[in-house]
Design a protein around this nucleic acid. Structure first.
Lengths: 193, 193
DNA sequence: CCTACCGATCGGTAGG
DNA sequence: CCTACCGATCGGTAGG
């Protein structure tokens, strides 16, 4: 077994792992060093500060969700189809980047004010993509009467963002079944079941 | 203004406030002392350890949700009506005990193994109440065909548990409107819209 | 509830 | 990436 030097990307990845598991404040630089087989102080040749690591992980999360929304919209289709594509894309981001997604969802509030603002803006942009799709479907009359696109978007994203809290890849639902259940639930909720 | 000595309940309440805002590991005993106008070391005449405070806050959350489920079931009614009562009760618990609910939802994983297990069990019991109601409605054929009570319960609880993340009591939705939106969404999702 | 303190750990730096 | 270290802060205790 060859032991190679860690890259900056290795450090960021391990940081995501620990931040996801124990939280930002529950992870020390010495913990992170141990995870990588080096001393806490050695991390400072890769990174400027602990906060810096949180910024990198959380911003990667923001990029992943943003890119997923763009891909889903590029497929076109009816509001119903676009909503399904957004859901499937969201699931892929979470399941393929579980630690990053968890850190993005749970630890972003530990960022300093400036970085937190940028992340909140990215989150708002992502939310607006869902909202536009729902508003369009509601405008067409494809969804149930009285549906409020803003509130409904928050509810659907609540379900999607909670996946990291309970989903077990080894459990009875595989990825396709999860997406099916989510789609059936969300489409029924918007009245396009 | 009369400055009275703090009670143990005051300490637990302030702990909930800080744990909710900055997280368990982001809160020091000195922070908590400052919040109450005393020194960190003085807290130890009220409490045995920092972990002890987390246990108290999280177990209060578990009690509140458990009691809410009992009250909702005691009302009886159709599965549809019981689901609505469960939703309204959940909203009351969250909005009337925001700090406790946040700590219960986000910081319980910081508990030591023994206490964490007890909380997971309480959470499972609460979830089973929802599941039984959904299973009964599905058995009666009142809900959409193909509805999986287990998965649907998780989805509905995901929406309810996310309220603390976005709801603003000063915003456009008052409590009754929030409950209405949640009910409309959940009932449509189960196919009883 | 305070004074006075404990050993351990924290994020981080200088210099190699 | 390590050695050797810094001042600050951590949870917690003894004694009043």
């Amino acid at each position: 077994m060859v032991t190679t030097r860690n890259t900056r990307a290795d450090v960021v990845e391990a940081a995501g792992r620990l931040f996801a598991r124990r939280g930002y404040h529950g992870t020390s630089m010495r913990d992170l060093g141990k995870e990588l087989g080096l001393l806490g102080s050695s991390l400072y040749s890769h990174v400027e500060s602990k906060q810096d690591l949180l910024v990198e992980v959380v911003e990667e999360g923001a990029r992943l969700f943003g890119a997923s929304a763009e891909r889903a919209l590029a497929l076109g289709g009816t509001p119903r189809e676009r909503l399904q594509a957004l859901i499937a894309g969201h699931v892929d981001v979470v399941l393929d980047n579980l630690d990053v997604a968890r850190t993005f969802l749970n630890e972003a509030r530990m960022l300093d004010a400036g970085h937190r603002r940028r992340i909140l803006e990215a989150r708002d942009r992502y939310e607006r993509v869902f909202r536009r799709v729902l508003a369009e479907g509601a405008g067409e009359g494809s969804f149930r009467p009285g549906l409020d696109p803003k509130t409904t978007t928050i509810f659907i994203l609540s379900v999607l963002n909670a996946i990291e809290r309970w989903y077990d890849p080894e459990g009875r639902l595989d990825r396709a079944a999860l997406v099916d259940e989510l789609s059936a639930f969300a489409l029924a909720a918007v009245g396009s079941g």
